[in-house]
Design a protein around this nucleic acid. Structure first.
Length: 154
DNA sequence: GCCAACGTTGGC
DNA sequence: GCCAACGTTGGC
């Protein structure tokens, strides 16, 4: 099993939105970056665990845990001219973008803020999230980092 | 709202 | 293949 961190802007789609969905599941659409796409398409597996990270928010940080409940399939929002994620270069015969389905596992009582994570940068090693200039919306997390971060939830 | 740090596009 | 221009992400 692998571990991930997935970013979303809570103003667009936050953990509370996921919890309100039927069966607490939703497709994770809108990934339009090749590195991120390759990770979800080639590496993410059903049962993997992911941190839900709120970016571009008043309170930035990890707010809970999700699991991957469906492996990668074509992101159909790319085919819809009315979608803000529309990409004319992607089509059903040769899809360029992919998405997975996620399921809510639990919400932390308190957010683990980016600031807190930074304070533990030494123990977290070379975690992708804290790398300079990191803008990827999908980040790999090692088991060691995962376990360490979980202990920060108090 | 600003802007650093990317990633992408397209002319050459 | 180079690189300037442009677009996006995301912290502040």
């Amino acid at each position: 099993m692998k571990y991930w961190l997935m970013k979303s802007e809570p103003d667009v789609f936050g953990i509370n939105d996921l919890m309100k969905r039927p069966k607490k599941t939703e497709h994770w659409d809108g990934i339009r970056n090749y590195q991120a796409r390759n990770m979800i398409r080639d590496e993410m597996q059903k049962g993997d665990q992911a941190f839900f990270y709120h970016s571009n928010a008043k309170q930035i940080g990890i707010v809970g845990i999700m699991s991957i409940c469906r492996e990668a399939y074509p992101d159909y929002t790319a085919f819809d001219p009315d979608s803000k994620y529309y990409d004319p270069k992607s089509n059903p015969d040769n899809p360029r973008w992919f998405m997975v389905d996620v399921k809510h596992v639990r919400k932390f009582k308190n957010i683990i803020t980016l600031d807190t994570l930074k304070q533990h940068a030494d123990q977290l090693g070379d975690i992708a999230l804290l790398k300079r200039g990191n803008r990827l919306s999908i980040n790999p997390v090692t088991k060691k980092q995962w376990d360490y971060i979980l202990k920060l939830e108090q």
